[in-house]
Amino acid sequence: MTIREIRKILAAALLTDGKHQNVTIHSACGSDMMSDVLAFAKNQPVLLTGLINPQVVRTAEMMDIRCIVFVRGKKPEADLVRLAQACGIELLSTSFRMYTACGLLYSHGLLEGPVPNE
């Protein structure tokens, strides 16, 4: 599933320039605890979260995450958007809640994905 498709499924607003929307996403992870995200390195995942502080982007950067979806219509500040842009990470904002947003992606075939061997 591409970032563009994720955006459609979640009726999400694009907060970054959208240059990387054709990147394919193979797995997903929904969490508000960054260390939980950092515990499970997955293959090219999307991160769904309700947090909008800069450490969400830093966490994504370390994990090679290319797309972050902010749930419940949250919109981060301009600094965070700039940081994501510099890291080549696309930001989406959906009005769905976490449970529904994850459920929608799952039911469209985006599964959790295996945890690759580090």
């Binding site: 508000d32 605890m33 960054m34 260390s35 939980d36 950092l38 515990a39 979260t49 947090l51 502080n53 450490q55 969400v56 966490t59 580090e118």
Partner: peptide
């Protein structure tokens, strides 16, 4: 509230 304090930091460091 910032998403840290799950107590996974040191275990993660050991793992990676």
């Amino acid at each position: 509230e910032l998403g840290f304090g799950a107590g996974m930091g040191l275990p993660n460091m050991k793992k990676y």
